[in-house]
Write a protein that binds this DNA or RNA. Structure first.
Lengths: 129, 129
DNA sequence: CGATTGGTTAGCCATGAAGCTAACTATAGG
DNA sequence: CCTATAGTTAGCTTCATGGCTAACCAATCG
C-alpha cells in the first residue's frame, strides 16, 4: 500500500523531458554509444550527458564504458514498474466505474418499481441526488 | 511519429511528485473537495493548491467550484495517454527482443549445421560476436 | 610521438518548482 | 450582521533543472 517509492519519482521525472523520452525511444530499438545518441540533438555534449545521467540514476538506462566509448542500453525494469503503476490506477478507476454503474442500475430499478406501484408519480421531476 | 507532445511532458512531470501521485490515486476512488484532498498532507493550503493546479494544467484532473467548495475529479484521458506511451515503447522493445531471439536462433542453427558438417569443430570456443 | 576523437569535470547562469506566511474574498451558518 | 469556513492571491525563499563554455583525460590513429 505504501507507494512512496522514490524510484517512481525519478522515473517519471526522467520521462517528463522530451529529450530523455526520445533517448528512451531510441534505446528501445537497441543499444547505442553516447555519441550516436547525442547526434540528433542540437545540444552541447555536457548538457546531453546530464540527461544520460538522469536516465541512469532513474534506473531506466544502463551504460558501460569500454575503451573510450560508453555504450547505453535500456533497462526494462524501471519502465515496467511505471507501467504497472498506471495499470493499478486504471484497475481502481474501472472498479469504481463498475460500482457506479451498478449504483445507477439500482436507482433505475427502484424507480421502475416505484413507477409500477403508483403510476401517477411517474412524471415526477429528477428526484434528489 | 512526432512525439513531441507537450501534454506528455506535463503529465509525467505531474506524476513525478509523490503528493500528486497520491492525489491521483485518491481521485481514482471518486471525486473530492480540495479540503478533503488536502487533509492527509502536512502542508499549507496554498502549497497544496499549487499541486492541484499542476494536475489540472496537465489535464489529469478537472475541478469545478460550486459555492465555496471546489470539487476535483480525475480526467482519465491524460492518464490513458501516458499509459499508451509505455505500451508503445514496450511493443517496440518486445519486437526487438523477438528479432534478437530470432537472430540468436539463426546463429544457433548455423552452428548446428556447421557442427553436422564437420563434427571435429564442435568444441570451438564462443566464436566472433 | 602528436593529433583527433569521445567523453568527462568544473563552474557559471537563468529559470522554474516547491514550500512558506500573511492577507484577502466569498459563501454558509447562527 | 457576524463569524467561521474554504479557497485564493501575492510575495518571498530555497533548491533543482537544463543549458552553456572552457578545460581536461584517455584511447585511437597516422
Amino acid at each position: 500500500m505504501a507507494n512512496q517509492s522514490p524510484r517512481l519519482d525519478q522515473v517519471f521525472a526522467a520521462l517528463a523531458d522530451p529529450t530523455r523520452r526520445a533517448i528512451v525511444m531510441r534505446l528501445c530499438a537497441g543499444e547505442a554509444s553516447v555519441g550516436e545518441l547525442a547526434d540528433p540533438f542540437a545540444m552541447a555534449l555536457p548538457s546531453f550527458m546530464k540527461h544520460i545521467h538522469v536516465l541512469e540514476t532513474s534506473g531506466l538506462v544502463l551504460s558501460e564504458k569500454s575503451g573510450r566509448v560508453r555504450t547505453c542500453r535500456l533497462s526494462p525494469d524501471a519502465l515496467l514498474g511505471a507501467e504497472d503503476w498506471f495499470q493499478q490506477q486504471r484497475a481502481i478507476w474501472e472498479a469504481r466505474l463498475d460500482r457506479f454503474e451498478a449504483y445507477v442500475m439500482k436507482l433505475k430499478k427502484e424507480k421502475e418499481r416505484a413507477a409500477a406501484k403508483r403510476p401517477s408519480r411517474t412524471t415526477k421531476r429528477k428526484g434528489s441526488e
